[in-house]
């Protein structure tokens, strides 16, 4: 239950600064704000769709700061050649969502 989050503090800082640069409203980014950023990765859309499925933990069609970090983490790992998992492994679930 007390598993460290795989998103390291220094990575979280980087993801947070990207998050803030996208103009979150009420601490939340809508899908249409996040989509172009993920498309920028040049990953296939079906992969990005799965990244979204895994990171929008409450399935409200928007990402908060922690959900966005999960999305970015998965995108960066995918760019390094790691497969995107079919379901979110516990260490990837933000501590705030457990």
């Amino acid at each position: 239950v007390d598993i460290p989050w795989v998103v390291k503090p220094e990575e979280k800082l980087k993801f947070d600064s990207i998050f803030d640069s996208l103009g979150p409203v009420g601490g939340i980014l809508t899908g249409d704000k996040v989509k172009p950023v993920l498309l920028n990765s040049k990953l296939p859309v079906d992969i990005l769709g799965r990244v979204w499925e895994l990171s929008d933990i409450d399935r409200d069609g928007m990402l908060d700061r922690d959900e966005f970090s999960v999305a970015m983490y998965l995108v960066y790992r995918a760019l390094e050649g790691e497969p995107v998992p079919m379901s979110l492994p516990p260490p990837l679930v933000p501590p705030s969502k457990r």
Binding site: T30, G31, D32, V34, K35, L38, V45, D46, L48, G49, W52, E53, D56, R59, D60, G61
Partner: peptide, 13 residues
């Protein structure tokens, strides 16, 4: 907000 027929909250679907 999402295309017609979409109850999906996923902008990539």
């Amino acid at each position: 907000q999402y295309p017609a027929g979409g109850s999906s909250t996923n902008p990539f679907l």
